[in-house]
Design a protein around this nucleic acid. Structure first.
Lengths: 193, 193
DNA sequence: GGAAACTATTGACTTATGTCAAGGTTTTAA
DNA sequence: TTAAAACCTTGACATAAGTCAATAGTTTCC
């Protein structure tokens, strides 16, 4: 079960871990199984664990005053999920995270992240590289939302995340894009250039 | 000139650097002065330097097919500016960065970032903490743009960045928020609760 | 195997926001 | 000190996107 995480780390750090290091990883990350629709994090709770998705699909979303859900983030195999703001600052989260499909996760606490990063160079360099990737993709998403029409945003999404389209229904994708599901439906009928 | 950077690093890393470390910082970061409206980075060029703003105000923006500018990011004293995607991957940038006011900057190359982070623990921990801060504020901004009306977004902006309001004209702020300057103007007249 | 829940589409209508144009103010710079 | 440039506001109008409601196709699971 931990193999996918280990190869993910080797891959993203550009280093190969020793046997001892691999074992430390395996001992530290705690497996967790989630049934479809089960919460990983609920609004108001502190996000005590971050998780690596081994199998399954998850979503992170906020719920506004009128009860409408807004999808902030989607994740599938080999992605990380968690609310970093809550995780790092130990404050109650404003988001929910739940399983969209049955999931197998590997979870870790903030203290263990710090300790692993200190002991295993590959882990700290994997974290750096994740942060970079993350910051780049957030920047792209911000650019896309403030600069483009619903149609363009959907086109961007198709280009950057074709894999997610297979895994989530259209109303979830619409919410992720910040548009109404009806609008997405209409946009999809168009020539799309 | 380097003092503000040094205290920034001490502050964000939670450590205090030695004299030797401070001197290494001072030797590595190269000062640069920018006149109002002068480019720090132009679309199509590779972002060879990141900068720390010692004094002044800067903006990062894209220009769409119709020539309209979209402000991606604003920065003032004690902020970092640069296009990370271009900086790290050495690919041509899709953004422009220029000085909104006359600026004093401290610039650094990617190679020097890596080397400083290796030599000075405080630097690598400052980078980690910046990445965290950055990822949290990007997440907030994404949530704000996909979930809220122009009015709410402006209110959020006021809460999170009151300082920027003093430094940039309203049409720049409007663009940062992804709304038309006329809309911002109208929003500002309202009770605002 | 059938009811219930979830999903997608479509039409009619509403609304928030964008666009265009004009006027007035303030700032900049020659 | 004055002309030009930049900035902000306002009104009239256009339009992209949201809302509501109805329909119908799919899964899901007792």
């Amino acid at each position: 079960m931990h193999e996918s995480l280990i190869s993910y780390i080797n891959n993203y750090s550009g280093e190969v871990m020793s046997m001892a290091e691999e074992q430390l990883i395996t001992r530290t990350f705690v497996p967790k199984v989630l049934r479809k629709r089960q919460y990983f994090l609920q609004q108001g709770d502190v996000c005590k664990y971050f998780c690596f998705i081994v199998r399954g699909a998850m979503r992170q979303y906020s719920v506004d005053e009128r009860g409408v859900e807004h999808v902030i983030q989607l994740g599938i195999e080999n992605w990380w999920m968690g609310d970093r703001e809550s995780f790092v600052m130990l404050k109650p989260s404003s988001y929910n995270i739940d399983a969209w499909e049955n999931c197998e996760l590997l979870t870790i606490t903030q203290a263990d992240v710090v300790s692993l990063a200190q002991q295993i160079p590959a882990v700290s360099s994997m974290i750096r590289s994740m942060d970079e990737k993350n910051s780049i993709s957030n920047q792209r998403r911000i650019n896309s939302t403030i600069s483009h029409s619903a149609e363009n945003r959907y086109a961007n999404f198709l280009r950057e995340h074709p894999d997610l389209l297979q895994r989530f229904p259209l109303h979830v994708i619409a919410s992720f894009l910040g548009i109404a599901k009806e609008t997405l439906s209409r946009v999809r009928k168009n020539p799309l250039l």
